[in-house]
């Protein structure tokens, strides 16, 4: 099938991309960064965090779930939208218990990196201090529910692919347990027991916060050399760039 090219504008800049790709990728092709949090390249977008919210023809839409189309007028880097993104990040910081000084992921954490990028000095919302627990029962990983932002990346990305017929998707090893305020991520009882070292490491790497941690590996990188210590999160160092490269290798 012939690929159709869409013409659209981002912050008044003329852009082109293949019709149907997500606004995030269309922007990337034109060198424009849209901040994301739950989005992971190559898996079905969830649109759960709303950090990538943009304005398309004056309406708010999530850039990860909206395909680009001919004639769209997209706003990305405006004061109003950046304030909206900042408020989403502040909500996440006050809803969970994010003690950055005591977190192994600090410096490599995408939630923290976004807060740095938006220059958040203190959140505008009151802290909730909700009661959450830490599950250290698994032999390979910790699960710190204080930090979980329920982005579903682990559910969407970490799959068991053993003994499966070709073409099928694999079973999720992580899942949501319970509902509403009580909802939390849980490992599948049987598949979790067989979690390989590679998948455990991958789960830690793709977790945007410090909720999934591989045991006995903490604080490896010294302060000053961590991913976001010197560089703000951007197109060049976002996890989606890495995911994209991996997808191309396959």
């Amino acid at each position: 099938m012939e690929k159709k090219i869409a013409h659209f504008t981002i912050d008044n800049k003329e852009c082109t991309a293949t019709t149907g790709v997500s606004i995030i990728n269309a922007a990337r092709e034109n060198g424009i960064f849209i901040p994301t949090l739950c989005h992971y390249e190559g898996v079905k977008p969830a649109g759960s965090c709303r950090v990538c919210t943009v304005k398309v023809n004056k309406r708010h839409l999530t850039a990860c779930t909206t395909p680009v189309a001919e004639g769209m007028e997209i706003e990305v880097d405006t004061a109003e939208l950046n304030d909206l993104r900042s408020s989403v990040i502040e909500l996440l910081f006050t809803e969970g218990n994010h003690y950055c000084p005591a977190c192994e992921k600090s410096g490599n954490c995408e939630l923290q990196a976004l807060a740095y990028r938006f220059g958040i000095m203190a959140p505008r919302f009151p802290y909730q201090f909700n009661e959450r627990d830490v599950d250290a029962s698994h032999p390979k990983i910790y699960h710190d529910h204080n930090r979980c932002i329920l982005c579903k990346r682990c559910i969407r990305i970490i799959k068991d692919e053993k003994d499966l017929p070709a073409g099928s998707q694999g079973r999720s090893i992580f899942a949501f347990n319970q509902r509403a305020k009580k909802v939390k991520i849980k490992l599948d009882d049987r598949l979790g027991k067989e979690l390989s070292d590679e998948l455990a490491q991958k789960a830690m790497d793709i977790c945007p916060v410090g909720s999934i941690l591989v045991k006995e590996t903490g604080f490896k990188t010294p302060i000053g050399q961590r991913k976001f210590d010197k560089e703000a999160i951007s197109l060049d160092n976002s996890i989606n760039l890495k995911a994209m490269k991996e997808a191309h290798h396959e």
């Binding site: 218990n97 003690y99 950055c100 203190a122 959140p123 909700n130 009661e131 959450r132």
Partner: peptide, 17 residues
């Protein structure tokens, strides 16, 4: 406010739940 504890309670706030 000067430091994490002044801003969000910090490590002493770990008793909050």
């Amino acid at each position: 406010s000067f430091g994490e504890c002044a801003i969000m309670g910090g490590l002493p706030a770990m008793r909050n739940d």
